[in-house]
């Protein structure tokens, strides 16, 4: 990204949402366990390509990259993830209702 033309720097900021803080914590803790490294996270982020940078938020990209690494390390299967995501979505229409199983 260094050196490519770009517009003004938007200086808006936001407080982090709980789900974003949880994603951040998952990355740090998974790194500590040795399941994957921050370089594994970065590699997955880069492989998601330019479109993801434009269409997904920072921590959306992070959870996608964390998941990619955990699938690669065999921590859980795609089937387990898919089934769990369906179950979570059935709990309720908001994060507040779905966040605890």
């Amino acid at each position: 990204m260094g050196g490519t033309p770009a517009g003004p720097v938007c200086q808006d900021d936001h407080d982090f949402a709980l789900w974003e803080k949880r994603v951040d914590a998952l990355m740090v803790l998974c790194g500590n366990t040795g399941l994957f490294t921050v370089d594994g996270l970065r590699r997955a982020l880069e492989d998601m390509g330019e479109e993801a940078f434009e269409t997904m938020s920072y921590y959306e990209r992070w959870i996608a990259a964390i998941n990619q690494n955990l699938l690669e390390s065999g921590t859980y299967s795609i089937e387990e993830l898919g089934a769990r995501m369906e179950e979570v979505a059935r709990r309720g229409p908001t994060y507040g209702e779905a966040q605890d199983g």
Binding site: T37, D39, G40
Partner: peptide, 8 residues
């Protein structure tokens, strides 16, 4: 080497 770490 991050080039190896990145791929586990």
């Amino acid at each position: 080497n991050p080039e190896q770490l990145a791929y586990g």
